[in-house]
C-alpha cells in the first residue's frame, strides 16, 4: 500500500545543507495502522508530507498504491491524493468560507461525483454532526471541527489516511472522542492509517510504531494492538 525507500530530504539554509530526513525506509500493507513518533524537529511531519505526496524527496522514492510519487508532477500527485488519500490536520484545515457539509463535499466534487450530498450528510451523521451541516467552521468547537474534518477525510473512500497530530489542538475529553471515531471509521472502511503524534498512548493504539530522531529512523516495532484481532 505504501512503500518508502531510502527517503532523504535536505534543505538549503543560509548556504548550508540541512538534512531533515535521512535514508528512511519502511513498507505498509493495506489496512495497516502505523504511527510515527519522535520529538519536535525529528522529521515526523516531513516524512508524512513526503508519504502523502505533498512534497518531493531529495533522494529515495515513495510508492503509494503502486504509484511511484516522485515521478509525478504536482498536479498529477494532486489527482493521486484525491483518488487515494485522506487527510486529518492538527489545526483541522477546514475551508472557513464553506459550511460543514460543503467542506465534506469538496473531495467528492473534485472527483466529479454526482449526488455527493447524500454521502456527505451520511458521513456527518456518522460523526454525530448531522444537524450541523449548515454551520460554518467558526460556529463549531474545536472537537466538532475535527469531526467534520474526519468526515471529509473519509468522503472519497481513501485507501490511505494521513493524520498529523489529530488531537494536538484538543482537550483530553474531546481528544478521546475524536480518536475513538478515527479508529472506528478506519476499521469500517479498512483504510491504511498513517499517524504522526507526540502522544505515545495514541501511538500505542496503532499496530506499528516507528520512532524518528534527528531525521533518522531509530526504531520500528509492532505494538500490542497489532497482536489483538480487529474488533
Amino acid at each position: 500500500m505504501l512503500k518508502v525507500e531510502n527517503l532523504t530530504k535536505t534543505y538549503r539554509s543560509g548556504g548550508r545543507e540541512l538534512t531533515v530526513l535521512s535514508d528512511v525506509s519502511f513498507e505498509l500493507q493495506a489496512g495497516d495502522t502505523f504511527a510515527i513518533v519522535g520529538p519536535s524537529g525529528s522529521g515526523k511531519t516531513t516524512l508524512l508530507g513526503l508519504c502523502a505526496g505533498l512534497d518531493r524527496a531529495s533522494r529515495g522514492s515513495v510508492w503509494l498504491s503502486g504509484i511511484r510519487l516522485d515521478e509525478l508532477s504536482e498536479d498529477e500527485r494532486a489527482a493521486v491524493r484525491n483518488e487515494h488519500v485522506g487527510f486529518i490536520f492538527q489545526n483541522f484545515q477546514l475551508l472557513p468560507t464553506l459550511t460543514a457539509l460543503e467542506n465534506v463535499l469538496v473531495p467528492l466534487e473534485l472527483r466529479g461525483v454526482r449526488g455527493g450530498a447524500k454521502t456527505a450528510l451520511a458521513l456527518l451523521e456518522r460523526v454525530g454532526l448531522g444537524g450541523r451541516g449548515h454551520h460554518y467552521p467558526a460556529q463549531l468547537s474545536g472537537g466538532e471541527q475535527q469531526r467534520v474534518s474526519l468526515a471529509r477525510a473519509f468522503a472519497n473512500e481513501p485507501r490511505i489516511l494521513f493524520a498529523d497530530e489529530p488531537t494536538g489542538n484538543l482537550d483530553a475529553d474531546t481528544s478521546e472522542r475524536v480518536v475513538e471515531l478515527l479508529f472506528a471509521l478506519n476499521r469500517e472502511a479498512g483504510t491504511t492509517l498513517v499517524l504522526v503524534t507526540h502522544d505515545l498512548e495514541l501511538a500505542a493504539r496503532t499496530g506499528r510504531v516507528v520512532r524518528l530522531r534527528g531525521g533518522a529512523l531509530v526504531s520500528d516495532s509492532l505494538t500490542e494492538a497489532a497482536a489483538a484481532p480487529p474488533r
Binding site: L54, D75, A79, V80, F87, L94, L95, T97, V106
Partner: peptide, 16 residues
C-alpha cells in the same frame, strides 16, 4: 493561500 493549500491537499489542481 491557506485555503488554496487545503484544496491542493484534497486533490485540486493548480489550474482549478
Amino acid at each position: 493561500i491557506a485555503a488554496v493549500a487545503v484544496l491542493r491537499c484534497l486533490g485540486a489542481s493548480g489550474r482549478q
